[in-house]
Design a protein around this nucleic acid. Structure first.
Lengths: 165, 165
DNA sequence: AATGTAATGTTATAATGTAACATTCGTTCT
DNA sequence: AGAACGAATGTTACATTATAACATTACATT
């Protein structure tokens, strides 16, 4: 089973979450630097709020926080930051939940496979070439050329399975 | 490339679309009959409206039509019908578009792979066991057990590719 | 400092979806 | 036939998600 990359793992029990956030932010800094993009304080703050949870975060949850920090924050404040972060591949939108998660490996826009645990709500991300290639091959059989697949898989993570049967 | 089933094809050029609709409706009749479910006139009409296009249809587009036919139609009128149709596997929701398409092979809830053409907007549906099995295997490697995958693939259909390069 | 673009602020509204309760319709039982 | 029950629909109100459009501010370059 080569080529299975994990971009974002489930937290198996406790972990030092501050580290996830710190890492994500410094990776983001580096990534934007490289691309000549500006990770402004607002964008950085939104990214931090997305990373504050291993479960998907909703735009209006972020807005609620930002409102307490900046008077005059409004939906576009948050959506624009999220759009930017998505373009940079720093966050993914989970379409089936209208919510957002941080991406563990930016530069890497919208191709991973998101694993969403129905019990604990956490989201992991795989990036598997075999899956993409198989999908591409099957699509080609129908004459279809893939530009961007959205793969969101609901199920149960290892920890929840071992916990309640 | 065994096991690749096509549940819903792209329309390659013209076709007698009335036939798609007629077939879908009678399949639905049979399917509900079998399951002891009631395909009421309202539900049937909504299904028909979903099938009227090979492109995804929005809930409020359906509502606009229904409003002209029944005074007092409101969002729940449509959403309830759509919920029922989804439960029966007669339509799929495309999460990334907030829109609906008819399913070519009911009884078959939420497992196909939707192919969405960025140019013409049409949607086809594959149901490929290999893809599902590969995803299941890869997920298992991470300890994850799939309950329901959402696979929505954007790209270009054969016809649009041959038409504009 | 002057200019131009990117980012953010601000107001308003559009688009999507659901909660909660009332009424009607169909079936079954007597 | 009539009563009684649950399923389906009607109805009102509102919650959630997202964008348009225009004004202002911040930043980089000249």
């Amino acid at each position: 089973m080569a080529r299975l990359k994990i971009l974002r793992e489930f937290t198996q029990g406790r972990h030092k979450h501050a580290d996830c956030v710190t890492t994500a932010l410094s990776v983001a800094e580096a990534c934007c630097q490289q691309e000549g993009q500006r990770l402004t304080p607002l964008r950085k703050r939104v990214l931090q709020l997305v990373w504050n949870s291993h479960a998907p975060v909703k735009a209006y949850q972020i807005l609620d926080v930002i409102r307490h920090e900046k008077s005059g924050a409004a939906p576009p404040t948050v959506y624009r930051a999220l759009d930017f972060l998505q373009e940079q591949g720093l966050v993914h939108k989970i379409e089936s939940l209208n919510a957002y998660v941080g991406c563990g490996a930016p530069g890497h826009v919208g191709s991973g496979q998101l694993l969403i645990c129905r019990d604990c709500g956490e989201v992991a991300e795989m990036d598997d070439q075999e899956v993409l290639e198989l999908l591409a091959a099957k699509s080609r059989d129908v004459g279809f050329e893939i530009t961007s697949p959205t793969i969101e898989i609901k199920g149960r993570c290892a920890r929840c399975r071992s916990k309640h049967g």
